[in-house]
Structures are given as structure tokens and as C-alpha cells.
Amino acid sequence: MRSLNMKQNPFATFLVVLLFLGALATTGLSYSYIQKIRELRDLQNQTSVINRNRTMFQNLANDAIAYGQQNPKIFPLLEVVGIRVEEGQIRSSSTAN
């Protein structure tokens, strides 16, 4: 006669232990995932600010180049951001990368 007692069913016990471990792993990973997502969101906000600043500096450099048509004394300043202007030719290299 087969016993009906669950204590004598090692397969079920093994499955319960496995399920418990899986639930623990899922909980830990979920927590880690949420933390990382928060960090990523903060960094994405920071990156958008950085990109906005870079775009505005690019626009400032372009305006400075345009102003240089009237006053070429500004051209040496543009070399700070990697813009070289030679003999009236405006050649923009990488600015504020």
C-alpha cells in the first residue's frame, strides 16, 4: 500500500525547495533591476542635459564664426574648441566632442 504522506514524497519536497530558491532569485533580481533602472533614468537625464549643452555650445561656436566675418580677431579663440579658421575659410572640425 502506497503511503499518502507527503513527507515520503521527495520529488515534491525537491520541487518546493527549487521553487523557493527560484522565488528568492526572482526577488533579488527584481530589486537589482529596479535599482539599475532608476540609475539609468538619472543618467539618461544627465546625458540629455549634456547633449543640450553641447548643442548650444555648437550654436555659440557657429555664431562666433559668423561674427568672425566682421571681426576676425575672434578666430584664435575658436581654436580652443577645435575650430580652425584659415584665410577666411571656415573649416569646422570637431567642436566640443
Binding site: 521553487l19 526572482t26 533580481l29
Partner: peptide
């Protein structure tokens, strides 16, 4: 139990 273990394992792999 087997189904739940498979579910938990899949979820863990996905989250990982």
C-alpha cells in the same frame, strides 16, 4: 510545482 519552477526559472533568466 513543475510549472511554477519553470516560470520562476524563466523569470529569473529574463531578469538576469
Amino acid at each position: 510545482l513543475v510549472a511554477l519552477v519553470i516560470l520562476a526559472g524563466s523569470l529569473s533568466i529574463f531578469l538576469l
